[in-house]
Amino acid sequence: MKEKIIKILTEIRPEFDFSEQVNFIDAGMLDSFDVVALVVALDTEFGISIDGMDIMPDNFSSVGKIAGLLQKKGVPE
């Protein structure tokens, strides 16, 4: 799952290395429009619909947090 997440993130912002252990939001690697594009891509890739209430920047600040969101929607690790 984490490899797929990094691949999607890289498609959205190819200029950054998302395997780094940094806060993607604080580091300026993802802005709010990137988060929207990311949610659309994750919904499509994993056949889910991430809850609108969960679409807050902090939930997309690391690969681990994104994986947590997916697991909440029943996507296996």
């Binding site: 429009f33 929207v36 594009a37 659309v40």
Partner: peptide, 14 residues
């Protein structure tokens, strides 16, 4: 003030 690629992603999502 966005790249073309990013603007088109915005267009599709929104």
């Amino acid at each position: 003030n966005f790249s073309t690629a990013k603007s088109l992603k915005l267009k599709a999502a929104m």
